[in-house]
């Protein structure tokens, strides 16, 4: 199995005034292609920071982060944007769909930014992805016109727009009821079956159980790293 993500001795701290607070301390991790990793742990123990480092949204103070053979700490902000568009799909807790665009347009948008797919294919692909998450009928509706669960599914479809190798999600079900959250787990499992690598930060134990690997963070350290099932 190929290593998609390599974290070597990653250290991250935040400084406010004269006070420096370490958030992640000496983290070393390998995540393989096709793994579905759930990261859990108490609030303020570095879960979201780790996710931000994996997506290039934040930078480590020391150590190295290599994803798909790219050392993120060496890329400039501008290069990171381009890299992110091609390699990572991000799903946010509050969906963060553009309110002025329809669901279909929201999914087309990353394709327009990255230009990986030819223009003529983008609309078809957006329709395909909406169909994939079960939102064909809502294609021309605005985010504000659909439910939270539907918005999150549209956000997942948007994250898949450029067919990234890695999908990351920060509390993807944190804002959803349990029935809707169930649908999202199923969708993630299906994506894993298709060979996607997923890294998800969650407080939801049920979601964590559907993952193939469960990492727990405590005080900025990996306190446990369990393999629940084989990656696809």
């Amino acid at each position: 199995m190929q290593n998609l993500i390599k974290l070597n001795h990653v250290y991250k701290a935040y400084t406010q005034g004269q006070l420096t607070t370490p958030v992640l301390q000496n983290i070393s991790l390998n995540i393989n292609t096709g793994e579905f990793v759930a990261i859990t742990g108490p609030s303020g123990n570095g879960k979201s920071t780790l996710l931000n480092l994996l997506t290039g949204i934040d930078r480590p103070c020391s150590g190295e982060i290599i994803i798909n053979e790219t050392a993120l700490q060496l890329l400039k902000e501008e290069e990171l944007s381009v890299w992110r568009g091609l390699n990572v799909g991000i799903v946010f807790q509050f969906f963060q769909l553009l309110p002025s665009l329809t669901l279909l347009q929201n999914i087309q948008l990353p394709m327009d930014f990255v230009n990986k797919y030819p223009k003529r294919e983008r609309l078809d692909r957006a329709h395909y992805l909406l169909d994939r998450v079960g939102l064909t009928k809502q294609a021309k509706q605005l985010p504000g016109q659909v439910s939270g669960g539907q918005q999150q599914r549209a956000a997942i479809a948007r994250a898949l727009a450029n067919d990234p190798a890695l999908l990351v999600a920060d509390e993807p079900t944190g804002n959803l009821d349990s029935a809707t959250a169930e649908n999202i787990y199923t969708l993630f499992s299906a994506l894993q079956q298709e060979g996607k690598t997923l890294v998800i930060v969650t407080h939801n134990e049920d979601l964590a159980k559907t993952a193939s690997r469960h990492i727990t963070l405590h005080d900025g350290h990996v306190s446990s790293d369990q393999c629940l099932s084989k990656p696809v």
């Binding site: 944007s81 992110r84 553009l98 930014f113 450029n162």
Partner: peptide, 16 residues
């Protein structure tokens, strides 16, 4: 600002 950050997160570069 947050919207711009989201756009950058989903692949928009400075030029876009």
């Amino acid at each position: 600002t947050r919207e711009i950050a989201v756009l950058r997160a989903i692949g928009a570069n400075s030029n876009a």
